[in-house]
């Protein structure tokens, strides 16, 4: 049990340690985040210069939304980086075979790696949230209840995002090359989750269609609860929908893992 816990702890720290070995990467990530937040705040304030309210959001809510959306998107930043340890790179090199030879199962290994990335990038996002709040760039949540609902929604959103990413990654067991599938997924999820622009600005048919997809649960729902665009009364319904998606996606990824394991195809020599 103690060995198991120690192994889990070590694996959780691997993504953070990998990033921290490149100091230039850390500095770059920090500068990128600061500049990006500053730019989006400026852009949206300029956009709202002659408008008070649009799509149910005033300038304060809109700026808070886009900054929070950026910070939440950054939690999954690790999965977007061109990494030698990504599933598709492992399949391509043939190193995927080691995942099936280790005492730790491939599914658990993937989960711990993903958790490690979320912990590392999530820490940065949390720090960014604190700084943005202290600097007055974004508004605090109206009360503790809304804060708690937004936090739970964010957690469920991260579970959904993890399952979706896992589903796309597992495609490489069938397609071998899935770089463009990953990119298509990244753009689609950014668009449909509200990372590009608050979903509330889109036409009604788009919002209706998006209701049937899991993406808005990753960013739009938690951030909209936080800024008050989704009232607290409606938030519980949204949390229920997010939970349902978590279960459905878990079933889907379990099915894919079982079948992926049967068709491990080592490409490398």
């Amino acid at each position: 049990m103690a060995i198991h816990a120690a192994r889990t702890r070590r694996l959780l720290t691997v993504p953070a340690l990998s990033e921290l070995t490149r100091r230039s990467g850390v500095v770059t990530a920090l500068l990128m985040a600061v500049l990006q937040v500053g730019l989006v705040c400026t852009l949206w304030r300029a956009v709202y210069a002659t408008t008070e309210v649009s799509a149910g959001l005033d300038v304060r809510q809109a700026v808070t939304y886009v900054v929070l959306a950026l910070l939440v998107q950054r939690i999954r930043w690790g999965s977007r980086l061109h990494s030698r340890e990504s599933l598709w790179a492992l399949v391509r090199d043939g190193r995927i075979i080691y995942w099936f030879l280790r005492p730790l199962g491939p599914r658990r290994h993937y989960l711990l790696k993903s958790l490690g990335e979320i912990l590392y990038w999530g820490t940065w996002s949390l720090a960014g949230y604190g700084i943005a709040l202290a600097a007055g760039l974004i508004s605090p949540p109206p009360d503790a209840r809304v804060a708690a609902l937004a936090a739970v929604s964010l957690l469920l959103g991260q579970v959904i995002a993890h399952q979706l990413m896992l589903g796309i990654d597992l495609l490489c067991f069938w397609t071998t090359a899935n770089t463009n599938a990953l990119r298509v997924y990244s753009f689609s999820s950014d668009l449909l989750s509200g990372a590009f622009v608050p979903l509330w600005f889109f036409p009604g048919w788009f919002l209706t269609l998006n209701q049937w997809l899991p993406f808005q649960g990753t960013i739009n729902v938690p951030v909209s609860i936080y800024v008050g665009r989704i009232p607290a009364a409606e938030a519980l319904v949204q949390l229920g929908i997010q939970t349902l998606w978590c279960c459905l996606l878990y079933a889907m990824t379990s099915f894919l893992w079982r079948h992926a394991i049967r068709r491990v195809d080592v490409q490398g020599g």
């Binding site: 956009v47 990119r183 298509v184 753009f187 668009l191 622009v197 600005f201």
Partner: peptide, 21 residues
């Protein structure tokens, strides 16, 4: 499709901005 989506996402953002504001 990746190329189309990348450009279309920029276009979509612009369209939303110019129609709403």
């Amino acid at each position: 499709l990746n190329g189309v989506l990348w450009q279309a996402s920029v276009l979509l953002f612009m369209t939303v901005l110019v129609t709403r504001f």
